[in-house]
Amino acid sequence: MNVLAFTASVSVAALAAGFLGALTGLGGGVVIVPFLVFMGVDIKYAMGASLVSVIATSSGAAASYVKEGYSNIRIGMFLEIATTLGALTGAYLAHLVPTKALFVIFGVVLLFSAYLSLRTMPRQHGTEKPDPLAVRLRLDGAYPTPEGKQPYHVHRVPLGFSLMYLAGCMSGLLGIGSGAFKVLAMDQAMRIPFKVSTTTSNFMIGVTAAASAGVYLHYGQIDPALTMPVMLGVLIGSLLGAHVLMKAQTRMLRRIFSAVILVLALQMLYKGFTE
């Protein structure tokens, strides 16, 4: 295979991964890494390429969410202290952990993320009492709904902060955005409205990924020939995915794609236990 054919096939895979990632809400990274591994790329290069594309898609999407007032910048900035510290830890660990173990961890994380994205749990907001710590940190906010601005309170700040550190570790360790874990921390632990959680998570992913990208760069894990088609493919794929998402029957889509993710996860686990 020559450079042209290689670039073309990686572009197509990245386009599909970005599209899939946007539709499932998992993000491009968690899908592109197993894709590239499947194509015979060393997981360390795959992680580097994935991490960079994560910054591209997150920054691109965050721009519009921030403008519309969904993302809560104070929550984002505060929790980024935890995610960037976690990302540094994870990125250093990624270089120490044996490749086999990376496959196993990745497979488990993939399964868990797919499970999280499939589950839907509607909850009532705004009825609870304010949390004193959240009030002191000025985390409470309001977000746009069809009925106007809906105020909300933020709860269990220390638990959320700790979970964010773990989410950052995952991101640095595996070269993914770990959006599913960030949403879990905000939506379930801190009881932040789902829409605010997902958009603030998106806003944070770029900064988290940038923290580990510096480390990846030092270690030479970011290969330009591979990252070029991956980044452009994932970026375009996720834009298309976000566009389709607005009109699609998401429940059906999620079911189809969770099957794909299950296959990818099993493949990663298989690689981890056999090679």
């Binding site: 450079v3 042209l4 790329v41 060393d42 894990q221």
Partner: peptide, 11 residues
């Protein structure tokens, strides 16, 4: 473009 693709199978 016509060169052999980079070998990325080993880091």
């Amino acid at each position: 473009g016509g060169q052999p693709a980079p070998d990325l199978s080993q880091f």
